[in-house]
């Protein structure tokens, strides 16, 4: 991503943001509310068009493409507030993701079941998704995204509203995906989870990049402490 900028009316949501993401890496984006993190995600995922800058994935420019075109290229995003298809079961939710691969229903069912096993929801396969708890919704959405066979997964606050045991399970799941070669980009407020999971952190404030490096280095950076943590000492949420 090079020089990415986006303004909404008079508000400069993202200002000349640049960063690289290596295959198999987990990069976390942190920052206080209004920092522009979600806008960066929306620009990458094609939900918003950048005013300036370039986005390339695997050597091909994707900036300004439609969201569905970007997803078909292997970049799939999960939502901050998980959005399962509420009239469907867990299995059917994930089947929709598998159908994006243009496979038949039987193959989609098999793929979906595999992904439910991966995220630990196989026992809920035939339960209505509308019954899912917050933690289950997060895992279900990840399973649905995985069923599309993505190469880069964009996770918008995957630990938001999730209790401690579920966070541990999610961290194990995401670390396992990285071990399998998946590249992950996530936005997260839970700095403890960020420390435990990501390889590198990019901190944003008021639409600008203010620090980048290891989780320890970034959360100790005075600009991050000032802007994001609002305290003189780095704190772990």
């Amino acid at each position: 991503m090079r020089g990415l900028s986006k303004a909404f009316g008079g508000l400069q949501a993202v200002r000349a943001i640049s960063f690289d993401l290596a295959a198999g890496e987990i990069l976390g984006i942190i920052g206080p509310n209004g920092a522009g993190k979600s806008t960066v995600f929306s620009l990458i995922a094609g939900q918003e068009r950048p005013d300036a800058g370039d986005i390339a994935f695997e050597g091909r420019a994707i900036g300004g493409l439609r969201a569905e075109s970007i997803a078909r290229r292997g970049l799939v995003k999960t939502f901050q507030t998980s959005r399962p298809f509420s009239s469907m079961t867990f299995l059917e939710n994930v089947m929709v993701g598998a159908l994006a691969r243009r496979v038949g229903l039987e193959r989609a069912r098999a793929v979906a079941m595999e992904q439910l096993v991966t995220v630990g929801l196989a026992d809920q396969a035939h339960s209505p998704a509308a019954w899912a708890s917050t933690g289950q919704r997060k895992r279900l959405e990840i399973a649905r995204a995985l069923a599309t066979a993505p190469r880069l997964l964009l996770l918008d606050e995957p630990f938001g509203g999730v209790d401690r045991p579920s966070i541990d399970a999610l961290i194990r799941l995401l670390a396992g995906l990285r071990s399998d070669g998946m590249t992950l980009l996530l936005i997260e407020h839970n700095l403890d989870a960020v420390h435990r999971l990501v390889d590198r952190v990019l901190a944003m404030h008021l639409g600008e990049r203010i620090a980048e490096g290891t989780p320890q280095a970034v959360t100790a950076d005075p600009r991050v402490v000032q802007a994001y943590l609002g305290a003189s000492e780095p704190a772990h949420a």
Partner: peptide, 26 residues
Amino acid sequence: RRSPLGFVLRAIRDDEDAVRGLGFSP
């Protein structure tokens, strides 16, 4: 209703943006 098309239509009814994010054109 039992075809892949029916599946995707039901998903669109539930959440069009999520369907788009999976690579379908609603």
